[in-house]
Design a protein around this nucleic acid. Structure first.
Lengths: 144, 144
DNA sequence: TGTCAAGTGCAATTCTGTTGCAGAAACCAG
DNA sequence: CTGGTTTCTGCAACAGAATTGCACTTGACA
């Protein structure tokens, strides 16, 4: 575990500084469940280091996004959620009725990727997808 | 054209009122290019009727969304964009490099829909999808 | 250890979207 | 056409996420 330290050191080699704040923010994202908001990251780090400012969280997330080290997803809740891309990639099915979230394996999207590549000459980078719909239970309830 | 008047009249039959504001907002969405933000709709209608408030735009969009008459998509710009669903459904490939947008036919997603339905008992409502990536031209340029 | 650019904390601000409320107006009945 | 009811609108205040300017701090490297 803690292989995200490699990420931080890689950052350093590209020319970015290795600050405690950045390490703690990466820790927080890595130890989260994969649906971590900027505010949650802020709270988590502040438990150990109360001076961390939310703007630093956003600036770090912006950096990690630009380098494709984390993915940003809006699950419809109005605030974005972040996830380490080095963890196993997966996507989400979100039920409009009960709000439940199911995980979908990344391999499900391979046929779509291939089709887009062949038909449109376009290399799709589908890092983290949120698909809305209705789960089976809610579907049954609405009809019963 | 202007077949969105049918939509407004359909609204009326479900019990909603036929107000000039709603008609003008639908006009604005329908005459847009399919990537119209709430603020753009507001501006467009205010050109003819300066008293329209932005909250009315949001309330109308919320209503149309709930009835699945318009789709809401976040193309990553931080503000949602709206499109009439009665227009032919399509999705977008957005190149991270040049910003170009390609349209993808809705049928491309059918295999994904079926797979999700079978494997996860989940009815996916993929109305308007934005997929980021790299187009062929930019891919070639970066390597050249 | 000293230098300096990158990074941080703080505070103020911007921006999108929401909400409470009073008045306006669409719809329906008569 | 008129009156009554309920929805809808405009206004203004508000909420919350994210951004920015600026002075101070600190990591990296000679």
């Amino acid at each position: 575990m803690s292989h995200h330290h490699e990420i931080v050191e890689a950052l350093q080699q590209i020319g970015y500084r290795l600050t405690p704040q950045r390490m703690m923010i990466l820790d927080a994202i890595a130890s989260g469940d994969g649906h971590t908001s900027a505010e949650e990251i802020h709270e988590a780090v502040r438990a150990a280091y109360p001076y961390l400012d939310i703007s630093t969280v956003y600036r770090t997330l912006g950096l990690l996004k630009a380098l494709h080290l984390v993915s940003e997803t809006d699950l419809g809740s109005g605030h974005a959620q972040y996830e380490l891309l080095s963890k196993g990639l997966h996507h989400h099915l979100i039920c409009r009725e009960c709000g439940g979230i199911l995980d979908v394996d990344n391999s499900f999207l391979n046929p779509l990727r291939q089709a887009i590549d062949q038909e449109h000459d376009f290399h799709a980078e589908i890092e983290h997808l949120a698909i809305f719909g209705m789960c089976n239970a809610c579907n049954a309830n609405l009809r019963g």
